[in-house]
């Protein structure tokens, strides 16, 4: 039997990494089709309590409830008071700033 060559080790390692990546994809595929029990619990909580937002940042009200915060809340203290919470920089500005969305938070609202 011939000795193990460098090429065998390298190709073997590459094949092992590719197999692991495939296993990860398979795991994700199976996991997304069999969601954990906590997902059903969370969905029930959202439905029963009428929750509108995920708990991601609890430091400011416009980052805790971005979907229902008014558009001025990031500048709540006075007009020149810039947003000072770090998580504020991770929340997207209103879409009309980019000219890609309506001025208000929903397409359907504010008919005069």
């Amino acid at each position: 039997m011939s000795a193990l060559r460098r090429s065998d080790v390298a190709v073997g390692a590459l094949a092992a990494a590719a197999s692991l990546a495939l296993v990860a994809m398979l795991h994700a595929f199976v996991a997304s089709r069999t969601p954990p029990a906590s997902q059903a619990v969370n969905a029930a909580l959202v439905r029963d309590l009428g929750l509108t937002d995920l708990v991601l940042f609890t430091d400011a009200r416009y980052t805790r409830h971005p979907s229902v915060a008014d558009l001025h809340s990031a500048f709540q203290d006075h007009p020149m008071s810039l947003d000072h919470f770090p998580s504020g920089s991770l929340i997207a500005p209103p879409r009309h700033i980019f000219g890609t969305g309506p001025r208000f938070a929903s397409d359907e609202e504010i008919p005069e």
């Binding site: 509108t52 937002d53 995920l54 971005p66 979907s67 229902v68 008014d70 997207a92 879409r95 969305g101 208000f104 938070a105 929903s106 397409d107 359907e108 609202e109 504010i110």
Partner: peptide, 12 residues
């Protein structure tokens, strides 16, 4: 101001 379920989804 009216916030609809679809606008919440778009926000996220």
């Amino acid at each position: 101001r009216f916030v609809t379920r679809s606008s919440i989804a778009r926000t996220y």
